[in-house]
Design a binder for these strands. Structure first.
Lengths: 138, 138
DNA sequence: CGATTATATCGTACTATACGATAATATAGA
DNA sequence: TCTATATTATCGTATAGTACGATATAATCG
Protein backbone atom coordinates (compact mmCIF):
# COMPACT_ATOMS: atom_id res chain seq x y z
CA UNK A 1 0.00 0.00 0.00
CA UNK A 2 2.88 2.38 0.71
CA UNK A 3 4.20 1.96 -2.82
CA UNK A 4 0.74 2.85 -4.01
CA UNK A 5 0.93 6.21 -2.30
CA UNK A 6 4.37 6.84 -3.75
CA UNK A 7 3.01 6.06 -7.19
CA UNK A 8 0.18 8.54 -6.70
CA UNK A 9 2.69 11.18 -5.69
CA UNK A 10 4.69 10.57 -8.82
CA UNK A 11 1.56 11.09 -10.90
CA UNK A 12 0.73 14.16 -8.81
CA UNK A 13 4.08 15.86 -9.35
CA UNK A 14 4.14 14.91 -13.02
CA UNK A 15 0.75 16.50 -13.53
CA UNK A 16 1.81 19.72 -11.87
CA UNK A 17 5.14 19.85 -13.66
CA UNK A 18 3.60 19.55 -17.09
CA UNK A 19 0.45 21.59 -16.56
CA UNK A 20 1.50 24.48 -14.31
CA UNK A 21 1.57 28.07 -15.49
CA UNK A 22 4.96 29.41 -16.62
CA UNK A 23 7.13 30.78 -13.81
CA UNK A 24 7.17 34.42 -14.78
CA UNK A 25 6.30 35.96 -11.46
CA UNK A 26 8.75 37.07 -8.81
CA UNK A 27 6.75 35.94 -5.87
CA UNK A 28 8.07 34.51 -2.64
CA UNK A 29 7.29 31.20 -1.10
CA UNK A 30 5.81 32.49 2.14
CA UNK A 31 3.52 34.85 0.26
CA UNK A 32 2.04 31.96 -1.70
CA UNK A 33 1.60 29.86 1.41
CA UNK A 34 -0.27 32.73 3.07
CA UNK A 35 -2.46 33.22 0.02
CA UNK A 36 -3.29 29.51 0.05
CA UNK A 37 -4.19 29.64 3.72
CA UNK A 38 -6.40 32.71 3.39
CA UNK A 39 -8.20 31.29 0.37
CA UNK A 40 -9.05 27.97 1.96
CA UNK A 41 -9.86 29.05 5.50
CA UNK A 42 -12.42 31.44 6.86
CA UNK A 43 -11.66 33.67 9.83
CA UNK A 44 -7.93 33.84 9.37
CA UNK A 45 -5.94 36.21 11.52
CA UNK A 46 -2.27 36.99 12.04
CA UNK A 47 -1.82 34.36 14.71
CA UNK A 48 -3.18 31.60 12.54
CA UNK A 49 -0.74 32.65 9.82
CA UNK A 50 2.12 32.48 12.31
CA UNK A 51 1.11 29.02 13.50
CA UNK A 52 0.60 27.69 9.98
CA UNK A 53 4.03 28.83 8.81
CA UNK A 54 5.82 28.10 12.08
CA UNK A 55 7.02 31.69 12.36
CA UNK A 56 6.64 34.28 15.10
CA UNK A 57 3.59 36.50 15.26
CA UNK A 58 5.55 39.66 14.55
CA UNK A 59 6.99 38.20 11.38
CA UNK A 60 3.53 37.08 10.35
CA UNK A 61 2.22 40.56 11.01
CA UNK A 62 4.86 42.02 8.73
CA UNK A 63 4.08 39.55 5.96
CA UNK A 64 0.46 40.56 6.16
CA UNK A 65 1.34 44.25 6.16
CA UNK A 66 3.47 43.92 3.05
CA UNK A 67 0.84 41.83 1.31
CA UNK A 68 -1.78 44.48 2.03
CA UNK A 69 0.57 47.13 0.63
CA UNK A 70 0.92 45.04 -2.52
CA UNK A 71 -2.83 44.71 -2.76
CA UNK A 72 -2.82 40.94 -2.31
CA UNK A 73 -4.84 40.95 0.90
CA UNK A 74 -7.51 43.01 2.59
CA UNK A 75 -7.48 43.45 6.32
CA UNK A 76 -10.64 43.82 8.31
CA UNK A 77 -11.11 43.93 12.06
CA UNK A 78 -13.26 41.27 13.72
CA UNK A 79 -16.80 42.40 14.44
CA UNK A 80 -17.15 40.59 17.73
CA UNK A 81 -13.55 40.88 18.85
CA UNK A 82 -11.80 43.92 17.46
CA UNK A 83 -8.39 42.62 18.41
CA UNK A 84 -8.69 40.03 15.70
CA UNK A 85 -7.92 40.63 12.08
CA UNK A 86 -9.87 38.97 9.30
CA UNK A 87 -7.94 38.47 6.10
CA UNK A 88 -9.40 38.19 2.61
CA UNK A 89 -7.93 37.87 -0.84
CA UNK A 90 -8.16 40.73 -3.31
CA UNK A 91 -8.73 40.06 -7.00
CA UNK A 92 -5.00 40.46 -7.53
CA UNK A 93 -4.29 38.04 -4.68
CA UNK A 94 -6.62 35.46 -6.19
CA UNK A 95 -4.96 35.82 -9.58
CA UNK A 96 -1.45 35.50 -8.21
CA UNK A 97 -2.46 32.47 -6.17
CA UNK A 98 -4.10 30.89 -9.18
CA UNK A 99 -1.09 31.32 -11.43
CA UNK A 100 1.17 29.82 -8.79
CA UNK A 101 -0.77 26.85 -7.48
CA UNK A 102 -3.43 25.83 -10.00
CA UNK A 103 -3.08 24.00 -13.25
CA UNK A 104 -2.95 26.07 -16.42
CA UNK A 105 -6.54 26.13 -17.59
CA UNK A 106 -5.63 26.15 -21.26
CA UNK A 107 -3.28 23.22 -20.96
CA UNK A 108 -5.66 21.29 -18.75
CA UNK A 109 -8.54 21.83 -21.12
CA UNK A 110 -6.40 20.77 -24.04
CA UNK A 111 -5.50 17.56 -22.24
CA UNK A 112 -9.07 16.90 -21.11
CA UNK A 113 -10.36 17.36 -24.63
CA UNK A 114 -8.14 14.57 -25.86
CA UNK A 115 -9.78 12.12 -23.50
CA UNK A 116 -12.72 9.83 -24.01
CA UNK A 117 -15.89 10.72 -22.11
CA UNK A 118 -15.39 7.85 -19.74
CA UNK A 119 -11.86 8.96 -18.92
CA UNK A 120 -13.01 12.51 -18.27
CA UNK A 121 -15.62 11.19 -15.93
CA UNK A 122 -13.10 9.09 -14.04
CA UNK A 123 -10.86 12.11 -13.52
CA UNK A 124 -13.66 14.33 -12.35
CA UNK A 125 -14.93 11.71 -9.96
CA UNK A 126 -11.46 10.93 -8.64
CA UNK A 127 -10.59 14.55 -7.92
CA UNK A 128 -13.94 15.13 -6.32
CA UNK A 129 -13.69 12.10 -4.06
CA UNK A 130 -10.14 12.82 -3.01
CA UNK A 131 -10.75 16.50 -2.29
CA UNK A 132 -13.82 15.73 -0.22
CA UNK A 133 -12.09 13.07 1.82
CA UNK A 134 -8.98 15.20 2.22
CA UNK A 135 -11.07 17.86 3.94
CA UNK A 136 -12.03 15.43 6.66
CA UNK A 137 -8.40 14.52 7.32
CA UNK A 138 -7.33 15.55 10.85
CA UNK B 1 -16.23 22.86 -20.47
CA UNK B 2 -14.32 25.81 -19.03
CA UNK B 3 -16.24 25.58 -15.78
CA UNK B 4 -15.25 21.94 -15.69
CA UNK B 5 -11.59 22.88 -15.67
CA UNK B 6 -12.16 25.44 -12.93
CA UNK B 7 -13.88 22.79 -10.88
CA UNK B 8 -10.94 20.43 -11.32
CA UNK B 9 -8.61 23.19 -10.17
CA UNK B 10 -10.66 23.72 -7.07
CA UNK B 11 -10.40 20.03 -6.27
CA UNK B 12 -6.69 20.16 -7.06
CA UNK B 13 -5.92 23.03 -4.70
CA UNK B 14 -8.16 21.58 -1.99
CA UNK B 15 -6.29 18.30 -2.16
CA UNK B 16 -2.94 19.99 -1.84
CA UNK B 17 -4.06 22.30 0.92
CA UNK B 18 -5.32 19.49 3.10
CA UNK B 19 -2.71 16.85 2.33
CA UNK B 20 0.56 18.75 2.00
CA UNK B 21 3.40 18.37 4.48
CA UNK B 22 3.63 21.03 7.21
CA UNK B 23 5.53 24.17 6.23
CA UNK B 24 8.49 23.84 8.53
CA UNK B 25 11.27 24.43 6.07
CA UNK B 26 12.84 27.75 5.21
CA UNK B 27 13.24 27.13 1.55
CA UNK B 28 12.89 29.63 -1.26
CA UNK B 29 10.56 29.51 -4.19
CA UNK B 30 13.20 29.49 -6.90
CA UNK B 31 15.05 26.65 -5.21
CA UNK B 32 11.96 24.48 -5.29
CA UNK B 33 11.26 25.31 -8.90
CA UNK B 34 14.80 24.30 -9.82
CA UNK B 35 14.51 21.06 -7.86
CA UNK B 36 11.27 20.29 -9.71
CA UNK B 37 12.89 20.94 -13.06
CA UNK B 38 15.95 18.83 -12.35
CA UNK B 39 13.85 15.95 -11.06
CA UNK B 40 11.56 15.78 -14.06
CA UNK B 41 13.99 16.46 -16.88
CA UNK B 42 17.10 14.70 -17.98
CA UNK B 43 20.11 16.61 -19.25
CA UNK B 44 19.44 19.84 -17.46
CA UNK B 45 22.07 22.56 -17.58
CA UNK B 46 22.34 26.12 -16.36
CA UNK B 47 20.84 27.61 -19.50
CA UNK B 48 17.73 25.46 -19.27
CA UNK B 49 17.29 26.58 -15.68
CA UNK B 50 17.55 30.22 -16.77
CA UNK B 51 15.00 29.73 -19.55
CA UNK B 52 12.58 27.84 -17.34
CA UNK B 53 12.60 30.53 -14.63
CA UNK B 54 12.83 33.49 -17.00
CA UNK B 55 16.02 34.72 -15.35
CA UNK B 56 19.45 35.51 -16.72
CA UNK B 57 22.05 32.80 -17.09
CA UNK B 58 24.36 34.32 -14.50
CA UNK B 59 21.60 34.34 -11.89
CA UNK B 60 20.79 30.75 -12.75
CA UNK B 61 24.44 29.85 -12.39
CA UNK B 62 24.49 31.35 -8.91
CA UNK B 63 21.34 29.51 -7.88
CA UNK B 64 22.97 26.28 -8.96
CA UNK B 65 26.19 27.12 -7.15
CA UNK B 66 24.38 27.80 -3.87
CA UNK B 67 22.28 24.68 -4.25
CA UNK B 68 25.41 22.59 -4.74
CA UNK B 69 26.93 24.19 -1.63
CA UNK B 70 23.81 23.23 0.30
CA UNK B 71 24.06 19.70 -1.00
CA UNK B 72 20.77 19.86 -2.91
CA UNK B 73 22.31 19.32 -6.35
CA UNK B 74 25.26 17.58 -7.91
CA UNK B 75 27.02 19.13 -10.84
CA UNK B 76 28.64 17.03 -13.50
CA UNK B 77 30.20 18.09 -16.77
CA UNK B 78 28.78 16.77 -20.02
CA UNK B 79 30.64 13.80 -21.40
CA UNK B 80 30.26 14.77 -25.04
CA UNK B 81 30.37 18.51 -24.58
CA UNK B 82 32.35 19.60 -21.56
CA UNK B 83 30.93 23.11 -21.66
CA UNK B 84 27.61 21.74 -20.55
CA UNK B 85 26.68 21.01 -16.99
CA UNK B 86 24.45 18.11 -16.03
CA UNK B 87 22.49 18.56 -12.85
CA UNK B 88 21.20 15.83 -10.57
CA UNK B 89 19.38 15.77 -7.27
CA UNK B 90 21.13 14.58 -4.14
CA UNK B 91 19.27 12.54 -1.53
CA UNK B 92 18.80 15.75 0.45
CA UNK B 93 17.52 17.53 -2.66
CA UNK B 94 15.00 14.76 -3.30
CA UNK B 95 13.80 14.89 0.30
CA UNK B 96 13.40 18.66 0.31
CA UNK B 97 11.55 18.54 -3.00
CA UNK B 98 9.28 15.79 -1.73
CA UNK B 99 8.34 17.64 1.44
CA UNK B 100 7.54 20.77 -0.55
CA UNK B 101 5.63 19.48 -3.57
CA UNK B 102 4.27 16.02 -2.86
CA UNK B 103 1.33 15.00 -0.74
CA UNK B 104 2.04 13.86 2.80
CA UNK B 105 2.29 10.11 2.49
CA UNK B 106 0.80 9.44 5.90
CA UNK B 107 -2.17 11.66 5.32
CA UNK B 108 -2.71 10.36 1.81
CA UNK B 109 -2.56 6.77 2.96
CA UNK B 110 -4.99 7.55 5.75
CA UNK B 111 -7.43 9.05 3.26
CA UNK B 112 -6.98 6.25 0.76
CA UNK B 113 -7.62 3.64 3.42
CA UNK B 114 -11.02 5.12 4.11
CA UNK B 115 -12.08 4.54 0.54
CA UNK B 116 -13.84 1.62 -1.05
CA UNK B 117 -11.75 -0.49 -3.41
CA UNK B 118 -13.58 0.89 -6.38
CA UNK B 119 -12.91 4.48 -5.34
CA UNK B 120 -9.23 3.73 -4.85
CA UNK B 121 -9.12 2.28 -8.31
CA UNK B 122 -10.78 5.33 -9.83
CA UNK B 123 -8.24 7.63 -8.20
CA UNK B 124 -5.27 5.57 -9.31
CA UNK B 125 -6.58 5.37 -12.85
CA UNK B 126 -7.43 9.04 -13.00
CA UNK B 127 -4.01 10.18 -11.81
CA UNK B 128 -2.31 7.77 -14.15
CA UNK B 129 -4.30 8.88 -17.17
CA UNK B 130 -3.88 12.57 -16.45
CA UNK B 131 -0.15 12.35 -15.79
CA UNK B 132 0.45 10.37 -18.96
CA UNK B 133 -1.54 12.76 -21.12
CA UNK B 134 0.00 15.79 -19.43
CA UNK B 135 3.42 14.61 -20.56
CA UNK B 136 2.37 14.81 -24.18
CA UNK B 137 1.11 18.39 -23.77
CA UNK B 138 3.04 20.84 -25.96
C1' DC C 1 42.74 30.91 -35.18
C1' DG C 2 38.45 33.42 -34.55
C1' DA C 3 33.55 32.96 -33.51
C1' DT C 4 30.25 30.85 -30.82
C1' DT C 5 28.40 28.47 -26.86
C1' DA C 6 28.04 27.35 -21.95
C1' DT C 7 29.11 28.47 -17.62
C1' DA C 8 31.31 31.16 -13.76
C1' DT C 9 32.59 35.17 -11.06
C1' DC C 10 32.60 39.96 -9.40
C1' DG C 11 30.42 44.06 -7.97
C1' DT C 12 26.30 45.99 -6.74
C1' DA C 13 21.59 46.69 -5.37
C1' DC C 14 17.43 45.62 -3.56
C1' DT C 15 14.03 42.56 -1.46
C1' DA C 16 12.66 38.88 1.62
C1' DT C 17 12.78 36.66 5.93
C1' DA C 18 13.02 36.48 10.68
C1' DC C 19 13.10 37.59 15.53
C1' DG C 20 13.61 40.06 20.07
C1' DA C 21 11.98 43.95 22.32
C1' DT C 22 8.50 46.95 22.89
C1' DA C 23 4.04 49.12 22.24
C1' DA C 24 -0.85 49.72 21.36
C1' DT C 25 -5.39 48.19 21.77
C1' DA C 26 -9.34 45.20 23.00
C1' DT C 27 -11.34 41.84 25.89
C1' DA C 28 -12.02 39.15 30.14
C1' DG C 29 -11.90 38.34 34.91
C1' DA C 30 -11.24 39.64 39.90
C1' DT D 1 -12.24 49.75 37.81
C1' DC D 2 -7.99 47.67 37.70
C1' DT D 3 -5.30 44.11 36.10
C1' DA D 4 -4.22 40.21 33.33
C1' DT D 5 -4.46 38.29 28.91
C1' DA D 6 -4.90 38.18 23.94
C1' DT D 7 -4.11 40.04 19.38
C1' DT D 8 -1.81 42.69 16.45
C1' DA D 9 1.69 46.34 15.18
C1' DT D 10 6.19 48.59 14.98
C1' DC D 11 11.21 49.27 15.51
C1' DG D 12 15.86 47.85 15.20
C1' DT D 13 18.79 44.61 13.47
C1' DA D 14 20.70 40.77 11.03
C1' DT D 15 21.05 37.45 7.48
C1' DA D 16 19.77 35.29 3.24
C1' DG D 17 17.65 35.40 -1.28
C1' DT D 18 17.24 37.41 -5.85
C1' DA D 19 18.81 39.55 -9.80
C1' DC D 20 21.60 41.62 -13.38
C1' DG D 21 25.41 43.95 -16.03
C1' DA D 22 30.02 43.39 -16.99
C1' DT D 23 33.59 40.48 -17.47
C1' DA D 24 36.12 36.11 -17.60
C1' DT D 25 37.02 31.25 -18.60
C1' DA D 26 36.80 27.25 -21.16
C1' DA D 27 35.17 24.06 -24.79
C1' DT D 28 33.56 23.45 -29.38
C1' DC D 29 32.85 24.60 -34.17
C1' DG D 30 34.04 26.22 -38.70
Amino acid sequence: MASNVKELNEYWTDIYFHLHYPHTEKISHQVIRILQLVEKKEEIGVNEVATYLHISHNTASEHVKRMVEKNLLIKERGLLDERKVLLHLTKVGKDVLHRNTSLDEEKLEQVMNQLADKEKEIIEQAFKILSERAKTCL
